[in-house]
Amino acid sequence: MHEEVLASVMANARVVPQLAIWGWQIAIYLFLGGFTGGIMVFSGWALITGRDEQTPFAVNRAPLVGFIALSVGMTALFSDLERPLHVWRFYSILHVTSPMSWGAWILLLVFPAIIVLTLAGLPLGFPALTRWLLNLPVVGKPLVQPVFKLCFFLRRPAAALSIGLGIALCIYTGILLSSFNSRPFWHSALLGPLFLVSGLSTGAAMMILGAGTAHERHLFGRIDLGLILAELTLLGLLLIDMLNGNAMQQGAVAYLLGGDGAMLFWTGFVGFGLGLPLLLEAAMWRRSFMVVASFASVLVLVGGFLLRDIVVTAGQQTSWTQLHNQFNPDLISNLRNDGEDPSSRF
């Protein structure tokens, strides 16, 4: 028999779940980061290969969606910082050993690229908005118009850059987690490729949702089918990796396969996020139907978020330490006068 308890009381994150390291904000950020990365890859690809006619959404409209998504994601990340006013500290140094530092700088490069693509596509994609911008008093003519022209001029180099940056952004969201040896479930090199494929898949799903032509919808449907298959493969490899991993990895994967996270993992992510869209896209191999394709795409997007949320949570289920309070750690909250009604203690 082995009994291991804390002789003192510990109200740290490992013991008190509400003090967890990262929660839904980081899952949102990782999801939207990958999603934007996927959009950048496909928009860049469409631009470079001159698919302006066949894939109008990818070329003209999708970059704005990506820009908004990344901004929302950054806001989520910002809101997770314990000292948000210190955010500028990220840009006072490039700490080469820190993936998060790399990520911060990648984001700094991503924004100009995606803004160029957005503005370059705006006149064709969102003519009303463009007109409104051009007619803005004072800045409209002298500033906005040249900017539009410049962006249109720069759109091909920006597109090439976007493909690279998009892939980097997708992979980075995985590498950020997998760099933590201390969280055994995250510590797998497969997490980068998995998040890359998932990011591309959600990007493709967005293209289907917003598709300007039937061709565009059909094309990205087929692409997404391949990506979902790749994602399933990588997921399987990750699970095999974990099942054959150390005790902490096995513990974390057990949480997904049969524990508290199983319902969300199997039904939510594997079932509705991957399986169902895979079937639907496969069924539409020859001909795409807008309603069905849109439904499948929404499922892919939901699945994309669930993947991040599940991985973020599972990674925090197990660690090298196994601290266990013998005293009720909830009682410590009573110190801060946010405890329960004292009359309930008897």
Partner: peptide, 14 residues
């Protein structure tokens, strides 16, 4: 310190 918590995730000893 920005309070990003990367170091908390990185610490094997919590």
């Amino acid at each position: 310190c920005t309070g990003c918590k990367a170091c908390i995730a990185a610490c094997p000893y919590d």
